[in-house]
Simulated scan of single mutants.
Amino acid sequence: MRGEAASGFPTIFEYGLPTLVNRQGATQNDRQLEALLVMARHTEDSTLIKRAGDPAILK
């Protein structure tokens, strides 16, 4: 997370927000879930990934 913070949270601004804004036909819940999944897919600096202990989570 430090890398994301130091870089100005690029995953949020490059992937999360565009996904949230561009999926206008979906429900708010679906848009938020999709944005979360897109951000998880594109982040390389995640405590979640470290705690999972399984590199296969990235695939």
Results as ranks from 00 to 15, higher is better:
E4G: 01
E4I: 03
E4C: 01
E4W: 04
A5I: 13
A5C: 05
A5K: 14
S7G: 05
G8P: 11
G8D: 15
G8I: 13
F9A: 03
P10R: 03
T11K: 09
I12T: 12
F13P: 02
F13N: 07
F13T: 14
F13C: 06
F13R: 13
E14W: 06
E14K: 13
E14T: 08
Y15S: 03
Y15V: 15
Y15A: 04
L17C: 08
L17H: 08
P18M: 03
P18D: 01
T19Y: 07
T19N: 07
T19P: 06
T19L: 09
L20D: 12
V21G: 01
V21M: 07
N22Q: 11
R23W: 08
R23K: 13
R23Q: 14
A26S: 10
T27F: 06
Q28P: 00
N29E: 15
N29P: 00
N29T: 12
N29V: 14
D30A: 15
D30Q: 14
D30K: 11
D30R: 12
D30Y: 08
D30I: 10
R31W: 09
R31L: 08
R31C: 05
R31T: 06
R31Q: 11
Q32E: 10
Q32L: 14
L33C: 07
E34A: 11
L36F: 06
L37F: 09
L37S: 05
V38S: 00
V38D: 02
V38I: 09
M39Y: 05
A40F: 11
A40R: 06
R41E: 15
H42Q: 15
T43I: 11
E44L: 13
D45I: 01
D45C: 05
D45V: 03
S46Y: 08
S46Q: 09
T47A: 14
L48A: 15
I49K: 14
R51V: 12
A52M: 14
A52D: 10
A52R: 10
G53A: 04
D54W: 02
D54M: 02
D54S: 04
D54P: 00
D54C: 04
P55Y: 00
P55V: 01
A56K: 05
I57M: 02
I57S: 00
I57L: 14
I57R: 00
L58T: 14
L58R: 15
K59A: 10
